[in-house]
Computed example of a mutant assay.
Amino acid sequence: MPKPLVLTSPRFKDGDLIPIAYTGEGEDISPPLQWTDMPAGTKSLALIVEDPDAPDPRNPQMTFSHWVVYNIPPSAQGLPEGATPDVLPEGARQGQNDFRRQNYGGPMPPVGMHRYYFRLFALDTVLPDLGRATRTQLREAMEGHIVGQAELIGLYTKVHHRGAESPGATPA
């Protein structure tokens, strides 16, 4: 049986706090990501970073997308810290996040401890140019083409909120 696709970051472990450099309170750059155990038949990868706890984890009302990237070549073994269009692997395209930008937008939740899901999808196709595709449009385009999936979860609450919550608290 093949190993499942694995997604990691050398800067934080699954379930840990995301370092401030990768947030709206820090440098607002993307964390470095690495993956292993690519499924056979993978023709491209897609990455969606989303927060299902917006705006308040005690009463979530939407899933907020922070980064939408697709057509990452399967030869790529990760994305570098601070990935911008000029350093993304050749062929990779960025869709539009809920900040209405085509780049990474780091966490900066208004209240509470939020969960940030970094979801990597292995696809059996290279997608057409979807332009400024939203998370929803990318998910629709990927339907029927996902051959593997991996997930990395990071946590974050604003620094000035941390006195009221334990940084290791489990979000609602």
Rank of each mutant, 00 (worst) to 15 (best):
L5N: 03
V6Y: 05
L7P: 12
T8M: 02
S9R: 03
S9N: 11
R11I: 10
K13Q: 15
D16H: 13
L17E: 13
P19A: 12
I20T: 13
T23E: 07
T23K: 07
G26N: 01
E27I: 07
E27Y: 05
D28Q: 02
D28S: 01
I29P: 06
S30G: 14
S30I: 00
S30R: 06
L33K: 03
Q34T: 10
W35H: 09
W35N: 10
T36R: 09
D37K: 12
D37Q: 15
D37F: 04
P39D: 08
A40L: 14
A40Q: 14
A40W: 02
T42P: 11
S44T: 00
S44Q: 01
L45Y: 11
L45C: 05
A46W: 01
A46D: 12
L47Q: 01
L47V: 08
L47A: 05
I48H: 09
P52N: 09
D53F: 07
D53A: 08
A54L: 00
P57M: 06
R58M: 12
R58I: 11
N59G: 13
P60M: 06
Q61F: 09
Q61E: 14
M62C: 09
F64T: 04
F64I: 09
F64G: 02
S65G: 14
S65Y: 15
H66V: 09
Y70M: 10
N71L: 07
I72K: 08
P73T: 07
P74M: 04
S75D: 15
Q77E: 15
G78P: 10
L79R: 05
G82P: 01
A83W: 13
A83C: 02
A83N: 02
P85S: 09
D86A: 06
R93T: 00
R93H: 01
R93D: 01
Q96M: 15
Q96S: 15
N97P: 01
R100S: 10
R101W: 13
Q102E: 06
N103L: 14
Y104I: 01
G105K: 07
G106K: 05
G106R: 01
P107L: 15
M108S: 13
